[in-house]
Design a protein around this nucleic acid. Structure first.
Length: 682
DNA sequence: TTTTGAAGTCTCTCC
DNA sequence: GACTTCAAAA
């Protein structure tokens, strides 16, 4: 269905509801689109239709949940009109778009347009720095104060939900309720420092974009766009909804199309609110509503299971998906004796489908959290099955990459205290206290002082003997990068930084070679950029989501399996989908079972996973799994099948049980099945 | 006083 | 693997 079409014929591929969405005229439109109903295709066609109707592509704004989604959608639209024109469409996430717009129009808000962007880890580091400033002697007997990641989570929720601190603490972080004053003080200082350091965090990007709407530049920005389209609207938050309102003031125009599915809302933890979809007709009076219910993706048996799972949801908009595709195999529920058996079974099924002609890249393995695939990855490697993993532990989060980037950021913004703090502690003999002393000496935090970087290079700070050699190496590296006439291309700069890091990485980390290669990979990525500031902000806003993203475009004939968290799999579809760890405590995660809303979100998450499958769906349930021992408990636990598959839903599956406790070989005798069945239903 | 190393704890999802 | 805590060494 996604082949190439002539300009006239592609509209014939659309069903009536899709066609209505694609060709509808001006004004606000809400498209409720169930899983697999051709939502992406419809949006791509809408873009193509607008361009064909004479809307200049640069006056179309397409907001998506990831940059990858925007790229794919515009690539499809490009096949319908032409690449040259679709390339001019504004596309990307809210955050990336804010970044672009604020660099163009942020002056009126008192922003200097060469700001740097803090990612979540940077936010946490700055919070931590402030926390230890405000409580220099942490009393250990005192009750624990919220950790830096918690502080960031509280702060982000407050901003994105637009809810006062007290309310956020009460509803979402009740265990921090009594620390309100301390938290408030940290937030105030956090905000102050961000401003003096000329940095914006993720939340600021949205806040300033909204603020832009209230300035005179805001009207200009609104007028820039004739049409605004938003994908995955169910996962936007109140702040983003306000941005859309500021972007579509009644006196400019109200051309706004949002597309979403309440049954697939899985970002409440990021303050996303289903109210955005519910209240859309209130925010944009006269909104037209179109529902897409015809499912093109999955066969009936897969849809039956998915519908049965979501039907148990506490509340939802009634919406039935009906399949277009006939026939199809029953989904398979595999009860495995343990996690090793699960890994082995996944490999077996994958290879069998490949034998039957389904290449690896049309199959995927989905799981709740990044480390759920650890064992499987070992097994895949052992069997030489190539794979690419999305989501989970990210490349940019590893310490050595952050070290290298911190050096670049000091060059970019010499008042970036988080980066200085990190860079200086790379030196032997310099710990937190030493780093603070140096930062004070070169005036990183005093607004009036000269450029701290120049001070650092011109007058070397006093350091203990152990740090002398490292300090000189650091100074000459930084000097090298600044004194070359003009500015060095980012890749060349990183090459020098890598030289500096080499001895450190070798001394500090266990597998230095792999880590140095990581930095080389980063150099490769940097090769695509001519400006350091662009490189750094793109990296913060669109981090490589898989290691393969860094290795450059994979060879066309290369075949590899996709491993992904369910969150990262949103919007994807595969012929064969394997959902692993369908046990209570995994799905739903036992960190998300404290209240009904969280459980409902986990249910939708499971639904999203199931609905990714086109032809074959496998759900794996490991009976026995390892969990790090807590207290006297045994390290091995017996699990219950996920609560989202009650008896009535199980019966829609073909059920198999494999493995025995003593021999983890496939093909257990039939009697084991009944034993296992008793275990999960008893 | 500050750094450094060792032992112990706990780990979700993403822009 | 990353972070915290604690104690020894500089």
């Amino acid at each position: 269905m996604f082949g190439t079409y002539s300009a006239a014929s592609w509209k014939e591929t659309l069903n009536p509801a899709q066609l209505e969405a694609v060709t509808c005229g001006d004004g606000p439109v809400l498209v409720i689109a169930g899983a697999g109903t051709g939502k992406t295709w419809t949006l791509a066609c809408r873009v193509a239709h607008l361009i064909q109707s004479g809307v200049p592509p640069e006056r179309i704004l397409l907001l998506t949940f990831s940059r990858r989604a925007a790229r794919e959608m515009l690539a499809r639209a490009g096949r319908l009109v032409d690449r040259e024109r679709t390339g001019k469409v504004w596309g990307g996430t809210f955050h990336a778009t804010a970044n672009r717009l604020l660099r163009l129009h942020g002056r009126g808000l008192g922003l200097s347009t060469d700001f740097t962007v803090l990612d979540q880890a940077d936010m946490a580091d700055l919070m931590d720095l402030i926390r230890s400033d405000q409580h220099p002697t942490r009393d250990k007997r005192e009750r624990r104060f919220p950790k830096k990641d918690t502080l960031v989570a509280i702060y982000s929720r407050m901003v994105n939900a637009g809810e006062p601190l007290s309310g956020v603490l009460e509803h979402a972080f009740p265990w921090c309720r009594d620390d309100g004053d301390g938290i408030r003080a940290i937030f105030a200082e956090y905000t102050r420092r961000k401003r003096t350091q000329n940095v914006l965090d993720y939340d600021d990007l949205l806040l300033y974009w909204r603020a832009l709407g209230e300035t005179s530049a805001g009207a200009d920005v609104a007028r820039m766009f004739e049409h605004v389209l938003v994908d995955e609207y169910q996962d936007t938050n109140p702040l983003q909804a306000q941005i859309l309102q500021s972007l579509r003031p009644p006196n400019v125009n109200r051309n706004l199309m949002v597309v979403g599915d309440d049954a697939q809302a899985i970002y409440a933890f990021r303050a996303a609110s289903i109210r955005n979809i519910l209240d859309f007709p209130i925010h944009f009076p006269g909104a037209r509503r179109i529902t897409l219910e015809q499912n093109y993706r999955s066969t009936r048996p897969i849809l039956d299971v998915s519908n049965a799972v979501i039907a148990q949801a506490r509340e939802r908009f009634p919406k039935d998906l009906w399949p277009v595709r006939p026939g199809g195999a029953r989904p398979v529920l595999l009860t495995c004796v343990d996690e090793n058996e699960q890994s082995a079974q996944v490999c077996e099924q994958i290879l069998e489908h490949r034998e039957q002609g389904v290449p690896l890249r049309h199959q995927s393995v989905l799981f709740r959290t990044g480390h759920h695939s650890d064992l499987l990855e070992l097994e895949l490697t052992r069997r030489n099955i190539p794979f690419v993993k999305y989501g989970g532990l990210k490349f940019l989060e590893s310490a050595h990459i952050k070290d290298a980037l911190a050096l670049m950021r000091v060059l970019e913004n010499s008042r970036d205290e988080v980066s200085w703090f990190r860079v200086l502690q790379l030196l032997d003999g310099i710990g937190p206290a030493g780093a603070r002393a140096i930062m004070h000496a070169i005036g990183v935090r005093s607004v009036a002082a000269d450029d701290p970087l120049r001070t650092f290079l011109e007058t070397p700070p006093r350091v203990p003997d152990a740090a002398r050699e490292g300090l000189e190496s650091l100074r000459s590296t930084l000097a090298d990068c600044t004194l070359v006439d003009g500015s060095l291309p980012p890749a060349a700069e990183l090459a020098r930084i890598r030289k500096f890091c080499e001895p450190l990485v070798e001394a500090r980390y266990s597998s230095p070679r792999a880590r140095l290669q990581d930095i080389e990979q980063l150099e490769q990525v940097a090769g695509g950029y001519s400006s350091r500031s662009r490189f750094l902000s793109e990296l913060a806003l669109d981090p490589p989501s898989a290691t393969s993203d860094l290795a450059g475009p994979p060879l066309l004939d290369e075949d590899y399996l996709i491993l992904s968290t369910v969150h990262s799999a949103k919007g994807g579809e595969w012929d064969v989908v394997h959902v692993i760890h369908a046990a209570d405590g995994m799905i739903p995660s036992d960190m998300s079972t404290s209240n009904q809303d969280e459980i409902e979100e986990e249910r939708r998450l499971f639904y999203v996973a199931l609905t990714r499958a086109r032809d074959n769906l496998y759900v794996y349930f490991p009976l026995r799994f390892y969990r790090r021992p807590r207290g006297m408990d045994d390290a091995y636990h017996y699990a219950q099948l996920t609560r989202f598959l009650p008896e009535s839903v199980q019966s829609l599956f073909e059920q198999r049980a494999v493995g025995t406790a003593s021999s983890p070989e496939p093909g257990a005798p039939a009697s084991v099945d009944t034993l296992l069945t008793q275990l999960w239903s008893g």
